[in-house]
Nucleic acid binder design. Structure first.
Length: 378
RNA sequence: GGGUGUGUCGCAUAGCGGCAAUUGCUCGUGGCUGUAAACCACGCGUCCUAACGGACUACGGAGGUUCGAGUCCUCCCGCACCCA
């Protein structure tokens, strides 16, 4: 199981400094949780992920269930052994795929939608490739089209077999644009599933319950209160987060004060650089995001000088290191020119270098914030 | 010297006489927040238009046939292969 110790609370914000203790070691919080959906931080070895400062990763139930299947992982001795990652691990429940393979795919939107956010998704409407029912979600696999059913029981069984230190309850991650009636019904399901997850999960695993509610204040509050009333080991804040960052902050504000303050809070799927300070100030302890790894593979580096698109030919003539202030191996070794060349040539090593740097940069960024909380300036 | 092919927008390709012309790559621009993502979208002859759209110039070169030619014919040039 886990223990969560809060070492310090900020006086100038809701930020807190803590230590999350698991059977596979400790994580200083606030912490960034890099995404290793298919039991891999794409392009990196597990050792390299550690070298880039990663201390905890999150893998994905739906994807690992689809392939290779949790049985393979279980027989390998669990996820830690399978991927040779000795440190703490989380698994997401598959709830995100209810969204990403469903309305997310249909509408071409993310969790924070800049458009199409009027409440136009009505109760009873289902996305094309996911049918959401009271007992769970019927997915059409994006890989071979076969039907995959995932409900709270299934998710707990799979996550039990995968064997991460911390698992998440199975929820419906709603898209931006659900109307109130849709959200009310969805919340009933997510809450019912939360209780089932608590009953079904393995004893030696910690479980975080997930709050939902879209952008409806009373539903966000209701969900936070309900999930907090259950014996979860921590909380995930999920679902769509409004049409802009201002709304995201409001949603966080409505939610956070109803969550048991002694338990860790994980903001699911949010963590662009300009979000990180804000959400930590709101009291978030953990957050995962695909941005650093995903952008890296699309040629973009995050640096102290801002986002840098290494696909641009202009960088071919730039002999400076990627980030002049970064202490990572990549910045200490290679020029922008070389990295740009690798990216433009489609060399996989270029994607590795950017992934390594981006993770190092994100982790260092959060380490910097922890220091500031420690010395009282954050 | 003889024969058979073949030359299309940077490269590679498609193209029953109605075509600014297919597709892939390159190139350019934009996007990516619990990863369906080393991906996706758009653009890629020139000029005009806010836009629908329009005008010009284009399929090795020069002629020709035709209402109309990248597509057919003749000659020339380049390339490939085969026979001497």
């Amino acid at each position: 199981m886990i223990e969560f110790e809060i070492l310090k609370k900020s006086r100038i914000s809701d930020a807190r400094l803590g230590i999350l203790k698991t059977q596979h070691g400790e994580v200083e919080t606030p912490a960034f949780v890099p995404v290793a959906s298919q039991a891999s931080v794409k392009t990196l070895t597990s050792r390299e992920a550690e070298d880039a400062g990663c201390r905890i990763l999150i893998a994905n139930t739906f994807l690992l269930h689809d392939r290779p299947g949790e049985g393979i992982v279980k027989r390998a001795g669990g996820l830690h052994n399978f991927m040779q990652w000795p440190r703490p691990l989380m698994t997401d429940s598959g709830g995100f795929q209810v969204f990403s393979l469903g309305f997310g795919k249909d509408l071409g939107i993310g969790k924070i939608a800049a458009r199409n956010t009027s409440p136009h998704i009505k109760k009873g409407v289902n996305p094309a490739a996911v049918k959401i029912a009271d007992d769970g979600a019927y997915f059409k696999s994006p890989f071979d089209g076969k039907t995959i059913f995932l409900g709270p029981q299934e998710s707990m069984k799979i996550q039990g077999d995968l064997g991460a230190d911390i698992i998440f309850a199975f929820d419906e991650c709603t898209p931006p644009g659900v109307d109130r009636a849709y959200m009310e019904r969805s919340l009933k399901r997510t809450h019912a599933w939360a209780k089932i997850c608590l009953e079904e999960k393995k004893e030696n695993q910690a479980i975080f319950g997930i709050t939902q509610g879209s952008k409806f204040r009373d539903l966000r509050e209701k969900s936070a209160k309900f999930i907090s009333s259950l014996p979860f080991d921590g909380f995930g804040i999920g679902g769509d987060l409004g049409e802009n960052k201002h709304m995201t902050e409001k949603i966080l504000f409505w939610t956070m004060r109803h969550l048991n303050p002694r338990k860790p809070r994980h903001l699911l799927g949010i963590g662009h650089l300009d979000d990180i300070a804000r959400i930590i100030r709101r009291g978030i302890d953990l957050f995962d995001c695909t941005a650093p790894t995903h952008y890296a593979r699309n040629g973009v580096a995050f640096t102290s000088a801002g986002k840098m698109d290494m696909r641009k030919s202009a960088f071919l003539k730039d002999k400076k290191p990627l980030d002049l202030k970064c202490k990572c191996e990549v910045c200490g070794t290679y020029s922008r020119s070389y990295l740009s060349h690798l990216v433009r040539s489609g060399e996989i090593t270029g994607l590795r270098h950017l992934t390594f740097h981006n993770l190092f940069y994100f982790n260092a960024f959060v380490t910097g914030i922890r220091k500031k909380i420690k010395n009282g300036t954050f």
